[in-house]
Amino acid sequence: MKISFTLNNKKVSIDTEPTKRLLDVLREDFKMMEVKESCGEGECGACTVLLDDKPVTSCLLNIIHVEGKKVFTSEGLSKKFLGKLLIDCFDETNAVQCGFCFPGFLVTSYHYLKTDGEANLEKIKVALSGNICRCTGYQKIFESVMLACLRNDSTGGKS
């Protein structure tokens, strides 16, 4: 079955089984290795991408549901202003450990910055609650997102 969608701003289409997971389409057919699989059951958020501007776990989504929609991966977002800002903040705080969870965190934090962006710890925690990190204890991830919110504010929300 032919499925067409927008991937990181590019129009793409693919002939595939409609039940193939979006995660597998991205990794296998489009070689987008930044989308990680860890649990395969929607629990960890390592495979998070933006689908029509909302974070979704691509391991639970069949490609048929992506028809005509817009998909962004962490790499796609890394080229945007807020993506760059977040990467700077994760880097500066030395928040990143094994890194396997981080592309997912980038996508979810990007969405938070874009849709709310208040430097509010409780809100950030809720926003990131679908992403698991086993290495960091989360503190430095909060700190990074907080920092990104503050900096984004001071640029007048240039996004």
Binding site: N94, G99, P103
Partner: peptide, 22 residues
């Protein structure tokens, strides 16, 4: 000193390679 990690940026973007990416 708080030197930054070599590999932080590629890890966040997702270009740092884990086994399944080879």
């Amino acid at each position: 000193k708080n030197e930054r990690k070599f590999d932080a940026r590629p890890k966040v973007i997702g270009t740092h390679k884990f086994v399944d990416d080879y």
